[in-house]
Deep mutational scan, measured.
Amino acid sequence: HNGKLCKLKGIAPLQLGKCNITGWLLGNPECDSLLPARSWSYIVETPNSENGACYPGDLIDYEELREQLSSVSSLERFEIFPKESSWPNHTFNGVTVSCSHRGKSSFYRNLLWLTKKGDSYPKLTNSYVNNKGKEVLVLWGVHHPSSSDEQQSLYSNGNAYVSVASSNYNRRFTPEIAARPKVRDQHGRMNYYWTLLEPGDTIIFEATGNLIAPWYAFALSRGFESGIITSNASMHECNTKCQTPQGAINSNLPFQNIHPVTIGECPKYVRSTKLRMVTGLRNIPSIQYRGLFGAIAGFIEGGWTGMIDGWYGYHHQNEQGSGYAADQKSTQNAINGITNKVNSVIEKMNTQFTAVGKEFNNLEKRMENLNKKVDDGFLDIWTYNAELLVLLENERTLDFHDLNVKNLYEKVKSQLKNNAKEIGNGCFEFYHKCDNECMESVRNGTYDYPKYSEESKLNREKIDGVKLESMGVYQILAIYSTVASSLVLLVSLGAISFWMCSNGSLQCRICI
């Protein structure tokens, strides 16, 4: 991952900044910058967002509201009850120091605090018919004063009620008058409520006091790749198909172990950190130390980045220098085999997901714990399936590479015959000098055995068991695999060879 928040398929997220979902939807004055928000790819909250409900109280069923919003990608904020005409018999300019803005008392931008007009609070009834052709999110509140005197001074009615009804919602609220500790300079409380109004449905408000009335509502448009994440990451000019709280993932790998919460087309989250597919040879310690064997393909974004291909070729060293050249036929066979294998694994496992966190309130801790156990169970199954699949494929890959290298080895052996000696570690020792032209003939299969047989015969008789390297004779190393990324691999195959001279070296080696 890149540690950044990015656009998702070209669409920017909605960053709530210092506000949370509650503050944004109710219209906390400190969240005025969010009022123009219309569309987004996903919503970003920060872990310690401080601006929620400015007048103390709870947004009821907040967790369910977050779940609903996680599939919303755009909205239209509109005046559901026009301020100047909807409440002619009531005062609608209630403000509070708890919702101060720029040093002055204020109130929510989407709600109206209705109080008595003169000395009376006549029963009010108002309704709205949803003609938007889509779901409408309606929010309101109920004020709970701290004393009967406060109730009387604001609403005149000691036994007030609030009723809200639609086809799918029907509740009646009565204020709970009680002494409470002071929070944000208030002994009173406000509880906030919401409902989704279906197209064509009607919502009716009736009250004799204590109503925090809707002013603006939201017509919602769903987008199934949307979601809500909690993150401290910063926004950058970048684009992605998959976003996590820790950063964007741009990967076609089937798995990731970065974060379980994802938005967009994302690899499946697994616990494993070692889900690797081999593309090189079986481990040979001396070669492995030099980083030549054991190439791997990573299938977990965050564990290993991208696929690494092994390729086969020849390396030689003689009086004229040293050089490398790919054996294109065996390399292409290996590439085709690995590509098919990788595609097979991805096809089997690479279903892209959006995974969002589930919200539970403080009273639902047991449910949250149960949900976590269920999620953990599914996660263990996914991890096991992934590891088992790759384990089985790896064994076949190792066998496949062994065969490829063996074929190259036999190709060289059949040409050199007794003009060189096998020394048991995949290397041959020449009994004759071999210049670049000679080396090329070994690589392309045109090695002239009779041409060098007499010199080889004489050297075999002279050496008589002495280690060949100390006599200045020449080696050919018969097994060799270097490691390159897919891009470098293609470039390498396009070149005939490249040279690395070893000044004054008397050794001649050709490596497979």
Rank of each mutant, 00 (worst) to 15 (best):
N232C: 01
A233S: 04
A233M: 15
S234V: 08
M235N: 01
E237L: 11
E237I: 10
E237W: 06
C238L: 05
N239Y: 13
C242I: 05
C242H: 05
C242R: 01
Q246V: 14
I249N: 01
N250E: 13
S251N: 11
S251Y: 11
N252M: 01
N252H: 09
N252F: 11
P254R: 02
F255S: 08
F255W: 11
Q256M: 10
Q256C: 05
Q256S: 09
Q256H: 08
Q256P: 05
N257S: 11
N257G: 01
N257T: 02
N257M: 06
I258V: 15
H259R: 01
H259S: 15
P260Q: 00
P260D: 00
V261H: 13
V261Y: 15
T262D: 00
T262R: 06
I263S: 02
G264N: 04
E265I: 10
C266L: 09
P267A: 15
K268S: 11
S272H: 01
T273S: 11
M277D: 09
T279A: 05
T279L: 13
L281E: 02
R282I: 07
N283A: 00
N283G: 03
N283I: 11
I284F: 08
S286E: 06
I287G: 00
I287E: 06
Q288V: 04
Q288L: 02
Y289N: 10
R290T: 07
R290K: 15
G291W: 09
G291Q: 05
G291F: 12
F293R: 05
G294V: 06
I296Q: 01
A297V: 06
F299N: 01
I300L: 14
I300E: 02
I300A: 04
E301L: 09
E301N: 07
G302K: 09
M307A: 01
M307P: 05
G310I: 05
W311R: 00
Y314W: 01
H316K: 02
N318E: 07
E319V: 00
E319S: 15
G321C: 09
G321V: 01
Y324F: 15
A325M: 09
A325I: 13
A326K: 08
A326C: 09
D327I: 15
K329W: 03
S330L: 04
N333I: 14
I335P: 01
I338S: 02
I338G: 04
S344F: 04
S344L: 05
V345N: 14
E347L: 05
M349W: 09
N350W: 04
T351C: 07
T354G: 06
T354H: 10
F360N: 09
F360W: 15
N361P: 07
E364H: 09
E364T: 06
E364V: 10
E364D: 13
E364N: 05
K365M: 06
M367R: 05
M367V: 06
M367Y: 05
E368L: 06
E368Y: 03
L370K: 12
N371C: 12
N371D: 10
N371P: 11
K372L: 09
K372E: 10
K373P: 02
K373R: 15
V374W: 09
V374P: 02
D375R: 05
D376C: 04
G377T: 03
F378C: 08
L379N: 07
I381D: 05
E387D: 11
L388D: 03
L388V: 12
L389M: 07
L389A: 14
L391G: 06
L391F: 04
E393V: 07
E393S: 07
E395V: 10
R396T: 13
T397R: 04
T397S: 03
L398P: 02
D399G: 08
F400N: 06
D402A: 13
D402Y: 10
N404Y: 04
K406E: 12
L408C: 06
L408K: 06
E410M: 08
E410G: 07
E410K: 03
V412D: 06
S414G: 14
Q415Y: 04
K417M: 09
N419T: 03
E422N: 13
I423M: 14
G424K: 12
N425W: 07
F428W: 01
F428E: 01
F428K: 01
F428G: 06
E429G: 10
F430K: 14
Y431V: 01
E437L: 12
M439G: 02
M439C: 01
S441G: 05
S441L: 08
V442P: 12
R443V: 11
R443C: 08
R443I: 03
R443K: 15
N444Q: 15
G445Q: 07
T446Q: 15
P450K: 13
P450C: 15
K451C: 04
K451D: 00
K451A: 11
K451W: 02
S453A: 08
E454K: 07
E454C: 13
E454W: 12
E455C: 08
S456N: 00
S456L: 14
S456G: 15
K457C: 04
N459G: 11
N459Y: 02
D464L: 13
G465F: 11
V466T: 11
S470V: 11
V473P: 15
Y474D: 05
I476F: 15
I476R: 05
I476P: 06
L477S: 00
L477R: 10
L477Y: 10
A478V: 12
A478S: 14
A478P: 05
S481H: 06
A484E: 01
A484G: 07
A484C: 14
S485V: 14
S485K: 07
S486D: 03
S486K: 08
L487H: 00
V488L: 10
L489M: 15
L489V: 12
L489C: 10
V491D: 03
L493R: 02
G494N: 01
G494V: 04
G494M: 15
A495N: 01
I496L: 15
I496Q: 01
I496Y: 07
S497Q: 15
F498K: 05
W499E: 05
W499H: 04
M500Q: 06
C501V: 15
S502P: 00
N503K: 07
G504E: 05
G504Y: 00
S505I: 10
L506V: 15
L506I: 11
Q507M: 15
C508N: 05
I510K: 02
I512R: 02
